[in-house]
Design a protein around this nucleic acid. Structure first.
Lengths: 215, 215
DNA sequence: CCAATTCAGTACCGTACGGTACGGTTCGCA
DNA sequence: TGCGAACCGTACCGTACGGTACTGAATTGG
């Protein structure tokens, strides 16, 4: 559940009125609850108490609505950069664990899963526009946060790697493994979530074994 | 492209006639080419030169057809267990690299991507039956192959791990990272494939750093 | 107080799909 | 040769969806 403030914030950069934001919120709820099949124009109009005509005026067509939903949701996720000050081995590890847990929880989120399912389902036909959008506006954000963290670790002499992308890929893989796919395929996420903490710590420990500078 | 022999083999364990196998083959081709939207009963019937009535008689309904497609494809993938004889550090590493490359190539395969997209798209509604099926009949297979390899490595004193699942998870994550998701989202797989070899070697090297027994 | 705009609600249209029914044909078998 | 099963091709039905058009109410600006 997002706050009203977050919603209002999200509208700012997108040229969306508050009303349109509410409509997108409702559309996301429909998508989360019932999948792409449940996301019909009539359904959105009914759920949001607006007319289909308004939907088409605002978003053009159904694809425009989907794009707007992705952009809307992405604009709500703000990744705060941690200050790179005073990094020692202990705090780096802690930051990495926090990042790993955040990553797992984001990927396991209702809306994230629903949007990824939507984009994947759409990927086969026509350029996979939604896929690129999700990649660019969703993953890029969290990737930047990780890159900053890794770079800070290297600057502080705590990490050793040549290729930051390679190191990030290893971290991502160790943290996520095949959990994301399993959740996308419908595995109940409820029981998984409690293992996130342990999983994050194990992954970070392994990552530091690989890329931590030997003292 | 599968051989006719492989197709005939696949029918054996599933109670499928050869004709039905051909139909499923054609259905898979439609799915690969055009995504779920292109997989209509009329389309399958036309492509396979059979009647819709026969489709419903053989597979019950559309979901039955989807299930049959997954089962059919899964039954075509045979994972040969490598003999665990004469494992040394060199051959273990080589086997792991081969496994990693195979894994990447399977995941990047047309049919695999299409079926995963199909199951993911279906996952939101109704128990995610297809997702479980894909998980059970597809991933379980390759997981067993990996487990056998890892166990052999441990028996030979070359690997050290307590939890085999954890070790496999690390290997999988290091090998696949987020490539699978990127491909599912529609990233062009063509340019990626040439990097599989290097990627596999890097991942195995990292894995051995984590779980290889120190001599 | 009046015109202009916006929008909800609904009715409507064309299309496409899932599923069923039926006529005609082939093939195996007695 | 006659019979029945399987099956192809097609026509058909009900439904649901994307998209459009219209109407009446609310709001806004002068």
């Amino acid at each position: 559940m997002q706050s009203v403030a977050a919603t209002r914030e999200a509208n700012a950069g997108n040229g969306l009125t508050e009303r349109q934001g509410v409509v997108l919120e409702e559309a996301l709820r429909l998508l989360v609850d019932g999948g792409e099949k449940a996301l019909t124009t009539a359904g959105v109009a009914r759920a949001a108490n607006c007319s289909k005509e308004s939907l088409y005026k605002w978003f053009g067509d159904r694809d425009g609505l989907l794009s707007a939903m992705i952009g809307f949701q992405a604009s709500k996720v703000r990744t705060q950069d941690v200050a790179a000050s005073a990094l020692d081995a202990e705090s780096l590890s802690r930051h990495l664990v926090v990042f790993a847990k955040d990553l797992l929880e984001v990927l396991a989120g209702d809306v994230s899963l629903a949007l990824n399912r939507l984009a994947i389902g759409q990927a086969s036909r026509e350029g996979s526009k939604l896929g690129h959008m999700l990649q660019e506006r969703g993953r890029r954000q969290i990737g930047r946060r990780a890159a900053a963290l890794l770079e800070a670790g290297r600057k502080a002499g705590l990490l050793a790697f040549d290729d930051a992308d390679e190191a990030y890929g290893a971290l991502y893989g160790l943290v996520v493994s095949d959990w994301h796919l399993k959740m996308l395929l419908g595995e109940e996420a409820g029981e998984m979530k409690k293992g996130f903490g342990r999983k994050a710590e194990q992954a970070v420990s392994a990552f530091l074994t690989l890329y931590g500078k030997k003292v």
